[in-house]
């Protein structure tokens, strides 16, 4: 089933999306399309609203007290961040930091350390950086990689932590601008070493260009487009 197939209507696609019966790839495709296709987004909202009564079927489960304590701590941590941001030595960084719309893209606990590291990395870069991308986990739990491009022809990818790649698997780096038909592979990546990538064969980098890292079988995707789950994802923002 491909969500582009004519035999799958927008409404049916939205229904599957809400039921949870799309494959990872199809799900991702619908998520992407929803951003531009308001009718599809509306159809998804339709099904979300109509089917939510099925949640009554699940039996309630007792929640341990520690869960609220963790939520409370995470929220306090989030809410305390804007104040510390004023200390950032890089002015564009401060405004970006204080941009709640941007940060709402990320959520949840446990990324303060990684974030601080990202800020440090960014703050000590030469002022010529033109674009940057923070690649975060799809659920927005934590930033994992930073992409920087001082020109629109070359970029550097840096890991913000160490990641265990399962045996027989590889991380593959992809990019896609809004008007491209599909993502283009930028090669396999290894955590632990900055990677320089030349974009000579591609159109110049642009604002909002999508970058993602997927988990593929060893050797990378055999078909030239992502086949495995997204590990990290982000879009390019102009950094100066």
């Amino acid at each position: 089933m491909n969500t582009h197939d004519n035999d799958m209507s927008r409404d049916e696609m939205a229904g599957h999306y809400v039921l949870g019966t799309l494959t990872e790839e199809e799900h991702r495709e619908v998520s992407d399309r929803m951003r531009e296709d308001e009718q599809l987004a509306e159809a998804v909202r339709y099904w979300q609203e109509r089917l939510v009564g099925l949640c009554d079927v699940a039996e309630p489960v007792e929640v341990r007290e520690s869960v609220w304590e963790r939520i409370s701590a995470s929220i306090d941590e989030l809410d305390s961040r804007p104040e510390t941001a004023g200390d950032s030595p890089v002015s564009w960084m401060s405004s970006w930091w204080n941009n709640l719309v941007f940060w709402r893209g990320f959520s949840a606990a446990g990324f303060a350390c990684a974030l601080a590291l990202a800020i440090t990395l960014v703050a000590y870069q030469p002022a010529s950086s033109k674009y940057m991308v923070v690649l975060a986990t799809p659920e927005g739990h934590s930033p994992g990689w930073v992409v920087q491009a001082s020109t629109s022809r070359k970029l550097t990818l840096k890991a913000l932590g160490s990641f265990e790649i399962p045996e027989g698997k590889a991380l593959e780096f992809w990019t896609k601008a809004d008007d491209w038909d599909g993502p283009v592979s930028l090669g396999l990546v290894e955590p632990g070493q900055p990677i320089q990538i030349s974009l000579d064969d591609l159109p110049p980098l642009e604002e909002n260009q999508l970058f993602e890292i997927t988990l593929e079988n060893y050797g990378g995707s055999p078909i030239g487009r992502p086949t495995g789950p997204i590990q990290f994802i982000g879009r390019a923002v102009t950094s100066i």
Binding site: R64, W103, S107, A108
Partner: peptide, 14 residues
């Protein structure tokens, strides 16, 4: 429980 935590953080943020 991790998801419940993440959901409430996300509700707060969004």
């Amino acid at each position: 429980e991790d998801i419940l935590h993440d959901a409430f953080v996300r509700i707060w943020q969004r």
